[in-house]
């Protein structure tokens, strides 16, 4: 293959095709494939869903149904850091709403929104299972607990 042609190949597409090929014979492959696709692209663009549908021979309506059912899947690009604020019971009774309010003010976005500089996507979740440290939030895979309106700003500043 000549260099010019190589440039035309989208490495993400190659990666996605490899994932589809790995799962195509497995039962119940759709959700793991969508999870991997979202890891590759950061979200699930329409073209990716169509490619997954063709690869796994699943009607597009079903794929769209699955993607919109589960909270994890995103149809729009996400920020560099995903901030999940817990409003589970324990966090609720220990003042999670105040923490959320501070974060919303700080970032200028609401649930599901992404900051203009693409730094954060804010999500409200219903329990990250760290109730002992309520109120809590999770940034990417890191859990932060015992939050207050004061310390949350400082934590946010650590993420670029």
């Amino acid at each position: 293959m000549c260099e010019a042609c190589e440039d035309l190949i989208d490495p993400k597409e190659t990666e996605l095709d490899a994932v589809i090929a790995q799962y195509v014979r497995e039962k119940g492959a759709l959700i793991p494939v969508l999870q991997k696709a979202q890891e590759i692209y950061g979200y699930l663009p329409t073209e990716v869903l169509k490619r997954v549908g063709r690869g796994l021979r699943i009607p597009l309506s079903k794929i769209y149904g699955v993607v919109t059912f589960y909270a994890q899947f995103r149809l729009m690009p996400m920020g560099r850091n995903v901030l999940r604020v817990c409003l589970g019971t324990a966090c609720h009774v220990r003042g999670g709403a105040k923490v959320l309010e501070t974060i919303e003010q700080e970032l200028g976005v609401k649930d599901g929104g992404t900051t203009e500089d693409q730094r954060f996507t804010l999500e409200i979740v219903a329990c990250i299972g760290a109730c002992g440290l309520a109120p809590t939030m999770m940034i990417n895979d890191e859990v932060h607990g015992r939050l207050t309106a004061e310390n949350v700003t400082e934590i946010l500043s650590k993420y670029e």
Partner: peptide, 24 residues
């Protein structure tokens, strides 16, 4: 199998649907 964020998947028939790759 990693869940994809749906509380109702704790219900066993919904959980099974989810493992099968469907809406839970």
């Amino acid at each position: 199998r990693a869940g994809a964020g749906a509380f109702v998947c704790g219900e066993e028939t919904a959980l099974i649907a989810s493992i099968e790759g469907k809406r839970g």
